Amino acid sequence: MDRDSAIRRFESFLASAVELEPTPDELELASRIEEAAVRAGVELDSGESQLCAIAVLRGPMILLTGDKRAIAGAEKVQGTVNELSALQGKIVCLEQAIAGVSERIGVEEVRARICAEPNADKALSICFQCSSTSPRADSFMEGLVSYVQDLRIKASTLLYAEDQL
């Protein structure tokens, strides 16, 4: 909602970010992941498949994504693309990351930041009750964990084991 502030923060982030450029081997693996996803009828787009390939081939790292459909899709195709098993327990969804941040800086602080931009992520806006005039702070984490547990049913091996990062 505050476009100028969002632009300044995004530009600041970009100045400190490292750009990931996939190697030919990573692109080949990403292509195989995408093909398997198409055959399985799951949603796993080229950006997410490239991130998976980079995480697999560059070694032990956590892959953080807000795309829960892609996480579930990767779970389904790991039987076809064996390399994806390297990501078991290493994919973190946005709700797990936000739960971890909430534990560190406090749920009220996180709520204030999320509700300042309620359209940025619908699930987070729901969890933090951005449209409520009398939110229940004790239920914020419950909402996040509910999303994580629902995803865990669909991605039981690839999803990070804890409810929060």
Results as ranks from 00 to 15, higher is better:
residue 99 A to F: 03
residue 63 L to H: 09
residue 58 R to P: 10
residue 39 R to M: 12
residue 69 R to E: 07
residue 98 I to Y: 08
residue 103 E to N: 15
residue 101 V to E: 01
residue 64 L to E: 15
residue 11 E to F: 15
residue 98 I to G: 00
residue 73 G to P: 08
residue 117 E to F: 13
residue 81 V to T: 02
residue 141 M to Q: 11
residue 96 Q to G: 10
residue 115 C to P: 06
residue 25 D to F: 02
residue 25 D to E: 04
residue 135 P to R: 10
residue 16 S to V: 06
residue 86 A to V: 00
residue 6 A to P: 02
residue 159 L to D: 07
residue 17 A to E: 13
residue 53 A to V: 04
residue 57 L to T: 06
residue 67 D to M: 15
residue 53 A to G: 05
residue 143 G to N: 06
residue 70 A to S: 07
residue 148 V to P: 05
residue 112 A to K: 14
residue 46 S to V: 02
residue 153 I to T: 13
residue 110 V to H: 03
residue 90 K to G: 05
residue 152 R to E: 00
residue 139 S to C: 14
residue 24 P to S: 09
residue 27 L to V: 15
residue 125 S to N: 12
residue 1 M to L: 03
residue 59 G to N: 01
residue 108 E to M: 13
residue 103 E to S: 14
residue 140 F to R: 12
residue 2 D to Q: 05
residue 129 Q to T: 02
residue 86 A to T: 09
residue 72 A to M: 08
residue 124 L to S: 04
residue 7 I to E: 08
residue 162 E to W: 01
residue 55 A to W: 10
residue 9 R to Y: 07
residue 120 A to C: 04
residue 151 L to H: 10
residue 92 V to G: 13
residue 113 R to I: 07
residue 60 P to Q: 04
residue 128 F to P: 06
residue 99 A to M: 00
residue 87 L to H: 07
residue 121 D to S: 11
residue 45 D to I: 01
residue 34 E to I: 03
residue 46 S to R: 10
residue 67 D to Q: 12
residue 54 I to C: 02
residue 101 V to M: 02
residue 34 E to Y: 00
residue 150 D to H: 12
residue 114 I to C: 09
residue 89 G to D: 14
residue 36 A to W: 02
residue 81 V to A: 01
residue 78 Q to S: 06
residue 157 T to A: 14
residue 94 L to D: 04
residue 41 G to K: 06
residue 78 Q to Y: 02
residue 23 T to Q: 10
residue 41 G to F: 05
residue 139 S to M: 12
residue 76 K to T: 03
residue 124 L to Q: 08
residue 27 L to P: 12
residue 80 T to D: 11
residue 78 Q to G: 00
residue 59 G to L: 00
residue 61 M to R: 14
residue 124 L to F: 11
residue 127 C to I: 06
residue 122 K to M: 06
residue 43 E to P: 01
residue 55 A to P: 11
residue 103 E to I: 09
residue 61 M to Q: 06
residue 66 G to C: 14
residue 19 E to V: 15
residue 106 G to A: 12
residue 28 E to M: 15
residue 116 A to S: 15
residue 149 Q to C: 14
residue 118 P to C: 14
residue 73 G to E: 04
residue 64 L to S: 11
residue 112 A to Y: 09
residue 33 I to K: 01
residue 117 E to C: 11
residue 52 C to E: 15
residue 24 P to C: 08
residue 132 S to L: 04
residue 97 A to V: 13
residue 1 M to A: 05
residue 65 T to W: 03
residue 111 R to S: 04
residue 1 M to F: 11
residue 41 G to T: 08
residue 137 A to N: 08
residue 12 S to L: 10
residue 83 E to K: 13
residue 79 G to I: 14
residue 109 E to L: 11
residue 2 D to F: 07
residue 4 D to I: 12
residue 10 F to T: 14
residue 85 S to L: 14
residue 5 S to N: 12
residue 87 L to C: 01
residue 140 F to D: 06
residue 15 A to Y: 06
residue 18 V to R: 15
residue 163 D to I: 09
residue 121 D to L: 09
residue 107 V to F: 15
residue 71 I to N: 09
residue 21 E to H: 01
residue 163 D to P: 00
residue 91 I to K: 04
residue 84 L to W: 09
